[in-house]
């Protein structure tokens, strides 16, 4: 990969990248009620990393990602499956959504197997996107 010499791109990426990542988590969490969700959030994070790869090169991107993308993919798949299992114990079909509501003071916090599933989707999509970017962009 020819490292981009554009200072503007690098600086902009450094500023935008954290914002994009935080925003992607926000998109993931709000996805059940407003536009967003695991696919979109995962793609958003993937785009952030791809941008970083264009600006700083794939090695830098791999360092930033810390985790091996394969771990992301495998872990994500596992989490989606885990999201489906609890329903089995209650005699429901695999992947049936279950909800628990907690109250922290006045604020209702909704937890669900559906959210777990969506987090798995997020990780898989991010893993796939970063694998593709890393592998295709790397000098071979």
């Amino acid at each position: 990969m020819t490292i981009s010499m554009s200072l503007v791109l690098r600086t902009a990426t450094r500023l935008i990248m954290p914002l994009l990542l935080v925003f992607s988590v926000y998109m993931l969490l709000r996805g059940h009620d407003k536009p967003g969700g695991g696919f979109i959030a995962g793609l958003m994070a993937g785009t952030a990393f791809a941008l970083y790869a264009v600006a700083y090169g794939t090695e830098a991107m791999a360092r930033l990602l810390r985790l091996d993308p394969h771990t992301l993919i495998g872990g994500g798949l596992l989490i989606t499956l885990l999201g489906g299992v609890p329903a089995l114990f209650l005699g429901e079909a695999f992947l049936t959504g279950l909800w628990w509501t907690f109250y922290i003071g006045e604020v209702a916090v909704k937890l669900s197997t559906v959210l777990i599933f969506d987090i798995g989707v997020y990780l898989v999509v991010l893993g796939v996107a970063s694998t593709v970017v890393l592998v295709l962009a790397e000098e071979t």
Partner: peptide, 28 residues
């Protein structure tokens, strides 16, 4: 859920979604 598209993806048709991300994984 109030985003119906997302609800279809992760709840009503979650098994399909599971199949689709497996396809993605295979592509990777």
């Amino acid at each position: 859920g109030r985003n119906i598209v997302n609800v279809i993806l992760v709840d009503f048709r979650a098994l399909d979604t599971l199949g689709e991300i497996v396809v993605l994984v295979l592509a990777a």
